[in-house]
Design a protein around this nucleic acid. Structure first.
Lengths: 237, 237
DNA sequence: TAGTGGTCTAGACCACGAG
DNA sequence: TCGTGGTCTAGACCACTAT
């Protein structure tokens, strides 16, 4: 079993310490030099791990002072890095339930065909999922994945309800990066019904095209999220 | 005149070559080794510059192949990094005009007072700006800045219409990072009027708290943007 | 096979902060 | 003043791509 690059192992280790409570919010981490000694790596490698934790909002670095665990927030969806819906929801993820609305093979709309680089008429697996938090609907997600990538997907369903895990295990495909468009839209028809919102009321609309490490399009996803679940982003200069 | 860290100089130099057309989309950049020699720096420094260009969506790196200038898009607003409205708009920024709606000193709402860490009753400079693209309104931005930070701000106005430049020059304050909440909201009252949208139609709502390098809150901003100008974000795993 | 980007080392000097 | 994070060096080996 290979765990990937060392800096990702360190990243996960510290993230685990934070989510398990071993490191409390406000705590100062050991200095980069000490962490380098503890993990038996050079300081540059520790810095790469801490840099990701910082951009994920888990820690704050203060020049001349130290690196601190940041304050937590509830009901949030962090989107600095690409991850599954559960990963984005962070601590709230345990309370998130998924209801499968649609699971079929079909010819996608033209815009999706283009983004997936399919020939006209080629089919794709079509998934519609409703995400619930505390029995309240929070988001509807519609996904299109090229049929030939994972032929059994519509028949066999998802591994642990996670599209990312399923793609990894069944097709050996790892999603590496994505480009995402965020806007506001009126909830209409089935979307409004599923989210239990008045027809025409505003929802967060996200269209995402995901790519593998070799820059092949893997998934086109369109989601509609209730406005009470804002996206949280940390931006650096 | 200090231009800051070398990697930022390299970053700007390559970004300039792309926006000026010296580097066309699809072109392959020189290899990291050659760039390191040309700029007279180590390869790690070049990599730091290329990493930012990649996360800004300006270039794509292909393992084993090279680094390429990515395809451009029009009417977009990239928000991978913190920047002024004009910087976010990229190539479209030349066509963006700003109309100042409000410029006053006032006691901000309680939520703003808290985020700016002001005492109850302390005043702040209040700015409301309307952004126009091709004579069409695209966004309303409301800003609150602690009065004591830049006492003359409401009287003297902004340097080149840029709040970031004004803060830098007049108060020596540089905004370094921000936390941003993105959601959807109905356009109401003055917002709907200014954006020329029907009352209640969806707009992108962004609330941003910006901080200095020493983590002091500098500005609370609330913006409402027309849905035809989506936020574009590149996400990495 | 040759060249590319991905990761990592073991140092170094600097700017910043807190006491 | 001293420890911290910010930047940078001059190498190294590896995985991947293209030929």
């Amino acid at each position: 079993m290979n765990a990937g690059p060392i800096y990702q192992v360190i990243n996960r280790d510290i993230a685990d310490q934070i989510s398990s409570g071993t490191l409390q919010s406000g705590d100062r981490l050991d200095s980069e030099l000490k962490l380098a000694e503890r993990y038996g790596v050079s300081r540059m490698t520790v810095r790469q791990a801490l840099g990701e934790l910082e951009s994920d909002g888990l820690v704050v670095r203060r020049h001349g002072s130290g690196t601190y665990v940041s304050e937590p927030r509830s009901l949030q969806r962090r989107v600095n890095h690409l991850g599954s819906f559960h990963e984005e929801m962070g601590l709230d993820s345990k309370a998130v339930k998924t209801r499968l609305i649609t699971q079929e093979v079909a010819v996608p709309p033209e815009a999706v065909t283009a983004d997936l680089r399919l020939s006209s008429g080629q089919t794709a697996t079509h998934l519609v999922r409703l995400r619930m938090l505390d029995k309240q609907p929070i988001a509807v997600q519609e996904s299109w994945i090229p049929y030939l990538l994972v032929p059994g997907l519509a028949r066999d369903g998802l591994t642990e309800g996670s599209l990312y895990k399923t793609l990894q295990e069944r097709a050996g495909v790892e999603i590496r990066w994505a480009e995402q468009e965020v806007t506001a839209a009126p909830a209409v028809g089935e979307i409004a019904e599923l989210l239990r919102l008045p027809e025409g009321s505003p929802v967060i609309s996200i269209r995402r095209v995901s790519y593998s490490a070799s820059n092949e399009p893997i998934e086109v996803a369109q989601s509609h999220t209730v406005p009470s679940l804002p996206l949280i982003v940390r931006l650096d200069r």
